[in-house]
Each structure stands twice: as structure tokens, then as C-alpha cells.
Design a protein around this nucleic acid. Structure first.
Length: 481
RNA sequence: GGCUCCAUGGUCAAGCGGUCAAGACAUCGCCCUUUCACGGCGGUAACUCGGGUUCGAUUCCCGAUGGAGUCACCA
């Protein structure tokens, strides 16, 4: 049996759509799982859509995602060139070969005639008008320099069938397939044709791609047959949806890999999540590394129906990856977000990291979680009322005053020491410890949710700032009874 | 509209003739707790509908309904 070879063939559009990345991932996983090769090919035949630097985006995305191609424009494996625009000259020759073999024919029909074929819905099927042209007439018109295209010659009757690895048996009536254009009037191949030729020339034997090609695959097979080439195996993948009706697409925003990175998702988490969208492992473990994905990947687990992208679950998974990090690792990836926040350069990022690691799911939450350290002013005092702790504004105010008195001359301003000191105070006041810690935490921060307890916040702020905020809060609370 | 394909909780999904129909996210409740979290425990929640086949259908077949894809000198 020949070696498994899969490919990922993106167009350089300047961004990597999540759906494409998943297709890429599956092609990679399948190849690696079977000790095969994974090839990167750039499909840039559509010059109108060409975007500067877009190829670099593809390289960097694959690299960040942890997907390594065995062959590609930057890694010659003997099947190059790997950029479609550099293969231009190939296609016309192959198209002519297919014409000779009867699988295709020249067509001279102009736009007007084609237009006249359309029905009231604007849907047309080419009527094989030029198929009946004699060899001599074709030669003559070609010699006259008449514009032409080359069309695939699809049998008028019968049924074309194949077996898809995920969808099973697919059969399409030949009469429903149009004689599509293989070579455009400018001499360039259409995607469909270039794809078949490239895949064959690159010895791709497992074609993994989106379902949009499921029903046109018989046409591709007819080309393989026409050339006398061996048909590849096919694995079609259902789309990732934004909701039940809409496909996830760049048109609706934030569906690109880069967008998620910016929001503070870790590449590993994104890859892990999208691997699970449309495929499920045999076991129940969902947090899987790339190595584990390769090991567990199996066509059996691929689902046929479209799946809806659920960012909430990806957030959770991202949080799981963050919780595993050491403070050092966290600071490294979180640094840009610290720099964006108000605490930039003013606090020990490592100290903050320890508090933040269990509390952050996406790095983008960092600024909102730490900004209170630098931003302190009037806030809503109803926060002091807490039924479960049995705290009223009166109790809070009383206890805050007591705390101020107790801490006035206290110098050991560390989390541990303060905790002990204040526990003692709670005992003296004969109240629950929460009744002193909760008001203090609020008094020091002015926000309902903080990345740690009262004494941790106090240590972070330092004695001077803590006492200043305590004074401010006592006054504010007294004013708002 | 023609053709192709799909159909289990809100979401991702396991299941491949006999199960109290897994698990995860989300959600709700309880516990832990120095707030917020983390963590632990538990709850709510699903086989689209109608016909068959079968001793027995979520599972197999047919139909309906719903959804996706496709029908370009775009990829």
C-alpha cells in the first residue's frame, strides 16, 4: 500500500478561518495517525483576491497551531512547485490530453448564448452544444484565434458513484452535472481542474475537504477516470456553524484564528476545541494535546451533521490550559494584557499571576480584573449589604472603623500576618470573620469581584494606599447610610 | 426549485436491535470558603413526526418535516 498523503490547500486571503483550520487539522491528524505525509499547497489562482503577505499568515498560523507540514513552498519534497500560480503552464497541456482522451472538449459559445440557456431562476445547464463540432471545425476555429474554453465531457446518462470515508456511499445522476469549464478563456485552469491535476501530480491519495465538494466529487472522479489515473479516497467534513442557520464566516466577524488569539485564547486550546467540533474521541477525556489527538484521531468519530461553534466551551477549555500554567508561563503569555491595563509596569506581574491563574479563562479578561488597583473612587455602597454573611451597612461601617483602629499601628503588612491579626479582631468583636474580611475587601477595592481575598488585596496595595482607601470608604459609607 | 447529504438535551456529542439513553460545556442548587474564583457533590434537560420490519426500535426501511451543501470563465 502506498504511503498516505494528505494536503491542505488554502487560498492566501490574509486570515485563517476557523473552519479552514479545522479542515487543515484533520488532514494533518489523519496523515500523522497513518504515518503519512502532510502537504501544504497554496492556491492563488484567483489573482483578484490576492493579498500581500497572506502566505506568511498561513505559515505563522500553522506554526502557532502546532501543525507541521512535511512539504510545501518552503519545504520541497520533490512534488513542487507548491504554489499554484507557479504551475500555470501545466494545466493546459493536461486539459488537451483529456480532450484527446474524450473526457473534455473545446467550447466556443459566447456569453450571450450561455445567458440564453438560463431558466427563469437564472439557473443554466450547458447543453453540450460544442461537443458536436467536428475535429476539423474545431481546428479551424482554433487556428482563427477564436476565444474558447475547455469543458469537461460528462456522460449524459447513467449514475456516478463513490464511497466517502465519512458520508458513505454517494451517488449522483450524471444528467444533473454540468459540463463545467476546465480551462477558462484566458487559458487559466478553474479551481476544479487545477485541483485534480495538482492532487494527482502530488500523489495525494486522501483528499480531505469541506462538504461543499461532496456532490461535485463525481465530476472529479470522472476526470481521474478520463486520464486513467487512480482515484483518491475522500473525506468530506461538515461545516462549522455560527447558529442553526448561519455558517460561521468572516462576514459575521471573529471567526478567524487571529481574532481568537487577540482575545486571549491559547493556540493549544483553540486547536483542542476545534478538533472536538465535529469529531469525538473514543474516551471521555476532552483536554487533548496534539500528540494525543494524533494518537486518537479516527474517521469513525467524525460526525456528519454541521456543528455549532460554542465559544463558552472554548473559554472553559482555555481556562483549563491556563490553570495548568506556572506563574512564569502565565506572565509570558499575559504580558501584553498587563501592559494594556492600568497596572502596566506598576505591580509585580508574578504576584498578580498567582492570583489570576485560577480566575482567568481568557487572557483578555486581565485588564478588567486588575484595573481597580490603579483606579479607585466613588462606588456603589449597597455592595456592603450581604444577606448570607449577615452584613448590613451599619455592621460594615462599624467593623471598618474597628479595623482602621486595629491596623493603625500594625506594620507587618503581609497576607499571612494581616489574616491572623484580623481573625483576632473578629474574635474580639464577637462576629463572623467574614464580617470583617468582606467589608475590608470591598473598602479596599470598590469592586464586587476581585482576584483574591481582603488581605491579599491589602498586601498588594501596601499599607499607605490601603489606609487611604479605608479612610475614603468609611467616609463614603457614612455618607450613604 | 432540481440534485446530494444530514437529524439524540440550549451547545458539543456517545450510542451502531434489548442501556435507568454516557460524558463535556452552559444552567440551577448545595458544600468548602475571607469576597470573587478554584475545587467537591447533586439537580433540570434529548432520541423531530408518521408509517412499516422485528418478540423488541434512538438504532434498520419508507415518507413527511426541518436543516446543510450545490447548481459560476470563484475558490
Amino acid at each position: 500500500m502506498s504511503k498516505v498523503r494528505t494536503r491542505f490547500a488554502p487560498s492566501p486571503t490574509g486570515f485563517m478561518h476557523i473552519g479552514n483550520l479545522r479542515t487543515c487539522l484533520y488532514a494533518y491528524l489523519f496523515a500523522k495517525k497513518n504515518n503519512g505525509e502532510f502537504v501544504l499547497r497554496i492556491e492563488d489562482t484567483d489573482q483578484e483576491r490576492y493579498v500581500e503577505g497572506a502566505v506568511d499568515v498561513i505559515y505563522s498560523t500553522l506554526k502557532k497551531a502546532g501543525i507541521q507540514h512535511d512539504e510545501g513552498p518552503d519545504k520541497d519534497g520533490g512534488y513542487g512547485p507548491y504554489i499554484q500560480s507557479e504551475r500555470k503552464s501545466l494545466y493546459l497541456e493536461y486539459a488537451k490530453e483529456l480532450v484527446d482522451k474524450g473526457g473534455a472538449y473545446y467550447c466556443f459559445c459566447d456569453k450571450e448564448r450561455l445567458e440564453s440557456l438560463k431558466d427563469d431562476k437564472g439557473i443554466a445547464k450547458y447543453d453540450k452544444h460544442c461537443l458536436s463540432l467536428s475535429k476539423e471545425e474545431v481546428q479551424k476555429r482554433l487556428a482563427d484565434g477564436e476565444p474558447y474554453v475547455i469543458r469537461q465531457n460528462i456522460p449524459a446518462e447513467g449514475v456516478s458513484e463513490y464511497d466517502d470515508m465519512v458520508f458513505g456511499h454517494i451517488s449522483v445522476p450524471n444528467e444533473d452535472m454540468e459540463d463545467g469549464i476546465l480551462i477558462k478563456s484566458d487559458g487559466m485552469p478553474t479551481y476544479n481542474f487545477a485541483n485534480v491535476v495538482d492532487d494527482h501530480l502530488m500523489a495525494i491519495n486522501y483528499v480531505i475537504r469541506g462538504v461543499e465538494y461532496l456532490s461535485s466529487t463525481p465530476k472529479y472522479n470522472l476526470m481521474y477516470d478520463g486520464f486513467g489515473w487512480q482515484r483518491p479516497h475522500y473525506m468530506h467534513l461538515s461545516p462549522i456553524m455560527k447558529d442553526a442557520q448561519r455558517k460561521l464566516s468572516k462576514r459575521y466577524g471573529d471567526a478567524n484564528f487571529e481574532d481568537f488569539l487577540e482575545k486571549g485564547y491559547l493556540p493549544k486550546a483553540i486547536v483542542n476545541y476545534i478538533a472536538l467540533l465535529g469529531w469525538s474521541p473514543k474516551g471521555n477525556e476532552e483536554k487533548l494535546s496534539m500528540d494525543e489527538l494524533v494518537e486518537q484521531f479516527d474517521v469513525d468519530g467524525i460526525s456528519k451533521s454541521p456543528s455549532i461553534f460554542d465559544e463558552a466551551k472554548m473559554r472553559w477549555l482555555n481556562g483549563e490550559y491556563i490553570k495548568q500554567m506556572t506563574p512564569e508561563e502565565f506572565v509570558e503569555v499575559a504580558k501584553p494584557y498587563f501592559e494594556k491595563s492600568k497596572v502596566a509596569g506598576k505591580y509585580d506581574y508574578f504576584a498578580l499571576a498567582k492570583l489570576l491563574i485560577p480566575r482567568v479563562e481568557v487572557l483578555g479578561e486581565i485588564p478588567e480584573k486588575v484595573d481597580f488597583l490603579e483606579e479607585f473612587g466613588e462606588y456603589d455602597t449597597t455592595m456592603f449589604e450581604h444577606k448570607k454573611m449577615k452584613i448590613t451597612k451599619e455592621i460594615a461601617l462599624n467593623n471598618l472603623k474597628a479595623i482602621k483602629e486595629d491596623l493603625k499601628d500594625f506594620e507587618d503588612w503581609t497576607d499571612e500576618a494581616l489574616k491572623e491579626k484580623l481573625s483576632g479582631l473578629a474574635e474580639k468583636l464577637a462576629c463572623k470573620s467574614g464580617q470583617v474580611f468582606l467589608p475590608l475587601r470591598l473598602a479596599l477595592t470598590g469592586v464586587a469581584s476581585t482576584p483574591g481575598g481582603a488581605t491579599e488585596m491589602a498586601e498588594l496595595l501596601g499599607k499607605e494606599e490601603s489606609m487611604r482607601r479605608l479612610d475614603f470608604s468609611i467616609e463614603l459609607l457614612a455618607k450613604n447610610m
